[in-house]
Amino acid sequence: MNRDAGKFWWLVQAFSGVALVLLLGMHFIAQHYVAQGGLRTYADVVAYLDSPWVLALETLFLVVVAVHAALGLRAVALDLGLARGQQRLVDGAVAGFALAVVFYGLWLFTRIGGG
């Protein structure tokens, strides 16, 4: 991490957080409140994800959540007072976590309906 990392990642965390407040609100309303009975049935989900707009929005949501969660985990890890070597390990681990979340989510999108 170079010296600017502190500011950069703090800003990413702050803006992803603000974005999440909006995206999550939308996700909640779309997936749970608008849906009949609080959850979409399988058929509904498939139909819903058919729209490219929805798919884009949900993908964005997925990425932002992954980044925000990874940075949050990293902050908690830093709370533990890590030595420099361990910190690099944590950076790698949380980056891996974020990527895993994103790819798993994308994989799910491709499976739904298609499978």
Partner: peptide, 22 residues
């Protein structure tokens, strides 16, 4: 995300879950 894997398993698994979720 783990729960959503049910979606990948097709309609039956998911709709069963919905019942539980209520």
């Amino acid at each position: 995300l783990w729960v959503l894997r049910l979606l990948a398993r097709g309609p039956q698994a998911w709709d069963d879950f919905i019942a539980l979720a209520r």
